[in-house]
């Protein structure tokens, strides 16, 4: 692993270590391509805080942006999370993990 790759991984984990930033990613997962105003409207955070968190997420490549006219849209970028999964989850384990996750969800829904 090169120093660059280590730095990238550090910045991803640092970015994910904050509950507010994870909440921002959850919002983008629900609806991709939101402006700063749209994100602020649904969160109990100041505009400055949201803007700062988005900067850290973008720096870690967890958020990608696209500008159209004067609007800037934010997108959840799954690339670094996929790379982390690739590193520790083997090709043949994936199917079994998915089956276990489905089983857990199925049982929990049935009990609910």
């Amino acid at each position: 692993m090169t120093k660059g790759e280590r730095d990238d991984l550090d910045s991803v984990f640092r970015a994910l270590a904050d509950a507010s930033r994870r909440e921002l990613l959850d919002r983008l997962h629900e609806r991709n391509g939101q402006t700063l105003n749209e994100l602020c409207a649904r969160l109990a955070m100041t505009r400055q805080a949201v803007s700062k968190h988005l900067g850290i997420l973008e720096e870690a490549n967890l958020v990608a942006t696209a500008k159209r006219g004067r609007e800037k849209f934010h997108y959840l970028n799954p690339v670094p999370i996929h790379a982390i999964a690739e590193r520790w989850i083997g090709k043949y384990e994936r199917g079994r993990l998915q089956a276990l996750a489905d089983l857990k969800r199925g049982l929990e829904e049935r009990d609910a």
């Binding site: 391509g33 490549n61 990608a64 159209r68 609007e71 997108y75 970028n77 690339v79």
Partner: peptide, 14 residues
């Protein structure tokens, strides 16, 4: 203005 539906960023050592 309509926003893009899909945006994806990857860094490549090249």
């Amino acid at each position: 203005m309509r926003k893009p539906e899909f945006v994806y960023v990857t860094y490549i050592a090249t």
